[in-house]
């Protein structure tokens, strides 16, 4: 929703079982076919499959997930030439992303994103700690 406010056109791609209910009303276009969804994309933001938080099977197997929803070079080719790949980490290589994409410095922003993520979290924590300290003083 934030990305929408900033003027991006957002598509959500994934199996129907992992889609939040009513996702199509968030201003994002929903795709269950990754190849169709990737067409002409500028940036592909992968998310980690959080299997540890899943009760019951949302999809049948890692093999099938990778085949239909894992980002590999083949599927990446459908996006705009020069499209960038992001992922918040830690990655499940071979589940949602192929190493050949994750480790390609020409397309992958992942390491930078993770580094920035650490700095961002530190900044947030510091801001919270300072505001807490200020409140105690008053």
């Amino acid at each position: 929703m934030l990305l929408n406010m900033l003027g991006a056109r957002v598509r959500l791609i994934g199996p129907p079982t992992l889609m939040p209910a009513g996702a199509e009303r968030w201003g994002a276009e929903v795709f269950h076919d990754m190849r169709a969804g990737l067409r002409d994309a500028d940036v592909i933001m992968m998310l980690r499959v959080q299997r540890e938080r899943m009760t019951g099977g949302f999809f049948p197997s890692a093999r099938e997930f990778f085949w239909f929803y894992g980002l590999d070079e083949d599927k990446l080719r459908l996006a705009k030439p020069g499209a960038l790949v992001m992922h918040p980490g830690p990655m499940n290589r071979g589940v949602e992303i192929d190493s050949s994409v994750a480790d390609d410095p020409n397309v992958s922003l992942i390491e930078t994103q993770v580094r920035m993520g650490v700095a961002m979290r530190m900044a947030v924590l510091e801001a919270l700690a300072e505001s807490g300290a200020n409140q105690e003083k008053n």
Partner: peptide, 13 residues
């Protein structure tokens, strides 16, 4: 029912 729900839902893709 949850298994059938997920299967039916997943099958729509």
């Amino acid at each position: 029912s949850r298994v059938l729900r997920r299967a039916l839902s997943y099958a729509t893709a």
